[in-house]
Amino acid sequence: TNQVSDSDQEKIDAIEWMTFDPLQRSEAMKQANAIMRSFLASKKLLACKKAFDQLPVKSIDVIFKNTLQQTGNTELSNEDGNAVKEYLCIKAYLDAHDAFNEWFAHYHGRKPTLPEPPSAANYMERVAHEHRVKEHKVEVAQWQSSLDQLTKRAEESLYNVLLFVTGGWMVDQNDVSQEEGGRLHQMRLLRQLCLPQICFLLHTVLHSTKQHHACLQLADLVASENHLLYRSFGREELQKLLSKIRESCLELLDAKLDPLGYELA
């Protein structure tokens, strides 16, 4: 996932060629989406990110402007509307991974360690140690405060994928009569590949930060008929999800609550 092969780089570079003519932007976005779908399907996250960055940030604006010029209003065609949504879905997914990775690195890597007490404690060493302990407390507080922020950001961007608006992540908003090259099929496979994984990452964040009640509510989210996430989960993934939720239940039991986190009757 962390290397981009030469042939992948060629595909990424090809996107740039398609962006020279602003009038072709919706076509460029569709092509870029197709390339990014194939990267996501083979879990090439870095390549996907590079491909994403090849498409100019203002592309959605450009597509709206083109539509306005051609039709006199900003109502996108069904195909363009779907392409823009897909592009935003991919963005949300990349953002979620970024946010998770940052959270993960901070959570596991940078917690300040408690200074060792001096072995033979003379007065000067004791004073120096007390000073170091005070500094340590400040560092821990800073660490915790960054962690809180990173946790919040990671949660938000992961939920953002799971709860993606207008019908869900990688679900078309508009019906299009002709299916282009198995696009819908690929999108369904991507939902099956990515949504359980995002859900597990979210559980990791919530569980590690002791938000056990929120862990349990993941069950509500996945089982909901509004979002239909459970349809993108295979049997083994559901078993894994239940096992993870069970771990959160055990934590709640330890805290003298019932397994769902309510006061014992």
Partner: peptide
């Protein structure tokens, strides 16, 4: 209910 539904599917 949600857990029971997921367990059925699992």
């Amino acid at each position: 209910l949600s857990l029971s539904k997921l367990a059925a599917l699992a």
